[in-house]
């Protein structure tokens, strides 16, 4: 245990550091650089040009997409958290240890299915002649338009985030001190009041972080907006793929990407500040 790093410690620690510096941090910094480059004859040229920033940030199209993405992701995060909470509550407080472990295993499964395949399958469920509308048809209702609109996008985002949010909420509820709940009951605190006055505040950090993850995933998702929302009008991530894939406008795509990263960092910072606020009260 010397103070100076040994050869042994360097051989173990450096490969990961070098790999992530070279292939993770450096590409992200490079993205900032190319946002100032110019495109001539479909070739990017190093430059220090604010034209891309100006073009993107002064367009209404960008800000429309920005606020649409923001609203969709916020709505998805809120709805997912609300749907997830009763489930996480039941898993954490009502189930035996064995059943809990099974639920966690079951909820991990969706991470290893292709999100694309699930979205394709959802298209079949949600289309006008699809399974859900056919079921409504038997009841003499509908058909309801559920595809190529905000509803479809939100359903896709919930599909993406619900398992993760339930897992994160369950983990944070598992850490809630059971004595507190006992105490609340002894003090004749009602069931619902116990949930909102005791359980939610003491699991606040985990609940906020779960919602934050749902927001991050939804904000960056391009599959639901494209294949369940129809892609038009675009969200920010669709803008990036469009600029990159069809227009060869990588510098402009970089501007959109940087704006997204700034937004996500701000959201993460705000959420974590909020989560830890008032804890010492």
């Amino acid at each position: 245990m010397t103070k100076r790093p040994t050869l042994f410690s360097l051989i173990l620690s450096m490969p990961l550091l070098l790999w992530q510096l070279l292939f993770f941090l450096f590409p992200l910094l490079f993205l900032v650089a190319i946002s100032f480059w110019t495109v001539r004859n479909f070739q990017m040229q190093p430059d220090l040009n604010f034209g891309n920033w100006e073009r993107v940030l002064t367009r209404g199209v960008f800000w429309d997409a920005y606020f649409r993405t923001m609203i969709l992701a916020t709505a998805a995060a809120a709805i997912t958290s609300i749907i997830a909470f009763p489930a996480s509550y039941a898993i954490s407080f009502k189930m035996s240890e064995k059943a809990k472990r099974w639920m966690i295993f079951i909820l991990i499964i969706p991470f290893f299915t292709s999100y694309l395949v699930r979205v394709y399958s959802l298209q079949v469920f949600l289309s006008d002649a699809g399974i859900v509308n056919a079921a409504f048809g038997y009841l003499g209702l509908g058909p309801f338009p559920m595809l190529n609109n905000a509803f479809g996008i939100i359903v896709g985002m919930i599909t993406l985030t619900l398992p993760l949010v339930i897992l994160l909420q369950t983990f944070s509820l598992n850490f809630v001190n059971r004595d507190l709940i006992e105490a609340a009951h002894n003090l004749r605190c009602g069931r619902l009041r116990t949930v909102f006055a005791v359980i939610v505040p003491s699991a606040k950090v985990g609940l906020v972080i779960a919602a934050l993850f749902a927001f991050i995933l939804s904000f960056g998702d391009f599959v639901s907006p494209l294949y369940l929302g129809g892609g038009n009008p675009p969200t920010l991530s669709i803008m990036i793929t469009d600029f990159t894939k069809s227009g060869q406008q990588w510098p402009r795509a970089a501007v959109v990407a940087i704006m997204m990263i700034i937004t996500l960092l701000t959201a993460a910072f705000a959420a974590i500040t909020y989560a830890y606020k008032e804890r010492g009260r």
């Binding site: 590409p27 992200l28 490079f30 993205l31 991050i216 995933l217 904000f219 960056g220 998702d221 391009f222 991530s237 990036i240 793929t241 990159t244 990588w250 795509a253 970089a254 990407a257 997204m260 990263i261 996500l264």
Partner: peptide, 8 residues
């Protein structure tokens, strides 16, 4: 987000 990773 994967689109940003992809672009970078």
């Amino acid at each position: 987000p994967v689109v940003i990773m992809g672009l970078a």
